[in-house]
Computed example of a mutant assay.
Amino acid sequence: MQFNFDSTEPIYQQVAAQLEEAIFTGGFNEDDQVPSTTEISKQFHINPATVLKGMNLLVAKDLIEKKRGLGMFVKQGAKDKIMHQRRESFYSDYVLNLVQEAQKLGLTQDKLEQLISRGYQNDDTTR
């Protein structure tokens, strides 16, 4: 985990985003225990209440759960929930804008699909 203390994004949101990313990328699997608020706060010199506030964002999103006396654990289906949310965000943040710009340029759906295919063919990161 790395925190940008100069960022306009609050630290608690950075905690939540980084834990969510770790769940999404397999750093924490379903039923895994996530580091305690104390561990994170000591390691990164962050107020424990700030860390807890970030974790509570993930509890509210139903990604982690508090097991009394044991700690916080990744819930079953958390990765799928993150995937679904990210796909919806991708659609609303990128696809809709892409289609609107394509329409402004007079591109048909077929032409847009050709351009997307071309992008996949030229993108070395997907190989």
Rank of each mutant, 00 (worst) to 15 (best):
M1K: 13
Q2N: 14
F3M: 05
S7W: 06
P10D: 04
A16N: 07
E20H: 01
A22V: 00
T25K: 11
G26P: 07
G26I: 06
F28M: 03
T37N: 10
T38G: 04
F44R: 12
I46G: 13
P48M: 06
P48N: 12
A49R: 15
V51L: 08
L52D: 04
K53Y: 03
N56L: 02
L57C: 09
L57M: 14
L58M: 04
V59Y: 07
I64R: 06
K66M: 08
K67M: 03
K67R: 15
M72H: 15
V74N: 01
V74Q: 00
K75Q: 15
Q76E: 08
Q76F: 01
G77W: 07
M83V: 04
M83N: 03
M83G: 00
M83E: 10
S89N: 14
Y91L: 13
Y91Q: 14
D93W: 02
Y94Q: 14
V95Q: 12
L96A: 03
Q103I: 00
K104E: 10
K104Y: 03
T108K: 12
T108M: 09
T108A: 12
Q109V: 11
D110V: 03
D110K: 07
L112S: 02
E113P: 00
L115S: 04
L115K: 12
I116T: 05
G119N: 14
Q121S: 08
Q121H: 09
N122D: 05
D123C: 05
D124Q: 08
T125M: 04
T126D: 02
R127F: 10
R127I: 04
